[in-house]
Structure formats: C-alpha cells, structure tokens
Nucleic acid binder design. Structure first.
Lengths: 143, 143
DNA sequence: TATTGTTATACTCTATAACTATA
DNA sequence: TATAGTTATAGAGTATAACAATA
C-alpha cells in the first residue's frame, strides 16, 4: 500500500466515524412520536413522493409483509394514506398526509437545530470549509 | 434570522443529510455475522474496553434486561465474556474475546473500504479539504 | 402464469415488573 | 435500604409461507 493510499484509508476511517457519530447523535436527538422504522417510511415519502409498498420495502431492506404492517400503523395514525395506483390495479400508492408531513418537518427541524447548535463555536473559515465539504460529501453519498 | 444564521442552518441541513446518508450506506454495506444491536455492543467494548451491562445499556438507550439478553447471545457465540468486577461483587464486566475482536476488525475494515472506494474519484485538493473537515466533524461529534 | 399486495404463523428484540445477590 | 444484574411475562417488529386480486 502506497503512502497516499494509507492516507486515503485513514481519511476514510475518520470520515466514516464522524458521519456515523453525527448520524447517531442526530437520531437520538429527535424523540419523534413515531418509531424509527415508521419515520423512515415518512422520510422516503417526503423525499421521493408517493410510492408503492414494494418500493418502500426495498428501500428499507425489509420484507413486503413487514412494510404492509408498518404502513397499516401509519395509516391508522393518519400519517399516510393508501390510494389506488392509476395504471395498475394490483399496486397501491402510499402517500404522505398533512399530519405525516408535519411530523417529518418538525423532526427535520429539530435535527438541523441540533446540528446547527454544534456548529456555533466555529469561525468563518471553518464554516466555509465545512460548506465545501458538505457539498463533496453529498456527492459521495449519492455515488 | 440573519443571513449568516440562514447559511449556518443550510449548512447544518446539508451536513446532517450527508452524514446520515453515508452512515446508512456504510451500515448496509457490511453484512456482518451479528445483528446490528449486537454489533453495537462489540463496538462499544472495542472503543471503551470492558464495561458493565448497565453501562452498555445506557450507551444504547436500551433497558437492562434487553442488554442482558444481548450479552447472553454474544457470550453464547463466544464473542464476549463475563468476568467478575474486581471491586464490587454485584457488578459484572463484559469484555471482548478474540473472536469478537476479529468480527469488529473485519467489519470496520469493510466499512472503511467502502468509504475509501467512494473517495477514489477525488483530486488532492478535495482530499485535503475532506481531511480538515473530518477533523472538524470528529470534534463536533464529540461536543 | 407472473406479479403485487395482504393474511397466517412463528421467532426475535424490547420493556416493565418481580426476584436474587451484594453493598 | 439501595444497587447491579438476572428472570418472567407481555407487546411490537420482522420473516417465510400461503392466499387473493390483477396483469
């Protein structure tokens, strides 16, 4: 392994560790009204619009029956609604209700508030550094 | 809200999102032999050394009986061992075995490999930018 | 016949309450 | 009496297999 490869692995380790820690802290921060697996579905719908149970199950690496159950709970709580699929009678679309959207919005805000609070002590140079890093990391996480 | 505050919140949002995405991708990447909640215990022991079941339960925001069960499974699999607490007969110390350490090491390596692979396309300027950002984020995640 | 989604059943993880051992 | 840990019991989530409806 060359020196630059070692440096890249060290950077990979630190970046991964930092991201995992922040994700963990952020997750514990927002004591949302819904369970994590339920919130995950709301987040997917918020991000990608109405989707079928099958798509949602694939996104969360979960079985179809599990997703059926989760969607049932969310529907009973009025956070999502099932609507007929326009082109295929076998499929169903799950969409976010206003109440579901409100929970998503509130949770995201509380998580961002935590993150913003932890950026308070940084100076302008550090903030602009993180600004560029955030853009890079968003690209990396999409790749 | 001032303009700089808005920028800080926008940065907070992007950083949080990127960290969550990377943490998620990394988690799905390593199909470890042990379940996530079990791996979490191994990671805590790897990071902080031998600890009591009570400490481990607090770290994972989990009840004491749940941690008892998880430690039982890990002990049955030979990944951790219970040893008497030196100073207090009521307490027990959970420590990593060689087999447990091996799983941790292998999983960390596979996660870092994923992260490193996703840094491949970046040039030296971008890598040194992320190097500084990683240090900042590690500080932030400890705060 | 293939596919989407749902029900049936069993297993695992977690929590609260009760119990045991030590301080 | 207080604390650390473990058992007992019940509730919630998930998976595999079987079923219903549509393509």
């Amino acid at each position: 392994m060359t020196e630059s490869e070692e440096e890249r692995f060290a950077l990979a380790n630190d970046l991964r560790l930092a991201c995992q820690r922040i994700a963990r802290r952020v997750r514990f921060e927002s004591t949302s009204q819904v369970a994590p697996h339920q919130f995950s579905v709301l987040a997917h719908l918020h991000h990608g619009g109405a989707q079928t149970p099958g798509q949602l199950a694939a996104l969360d690496r979960v079985s179809a029956p599990s997703m059926t159950r989760t969607v049932n709970c969310l529907e009973a709580d009025g956070l999502v609604a099932r609507v007929p699929h326009p082109g295929d009678g076998r499929q169903v679309l799950v969409e976010l209700t206003a109440a579901g959207l409100a929970i998503i919005t509130r949770t995201i805000a509380s998580r961002d508030t935590w993150m913003a609070a932890h950026l308070e002590g940084l100076d302008d140079d550090q903030l602009s550094l993180l600004r560029k890093a955030a853009d890079l990391l968003l690209e990396v996480s999409n790749g």
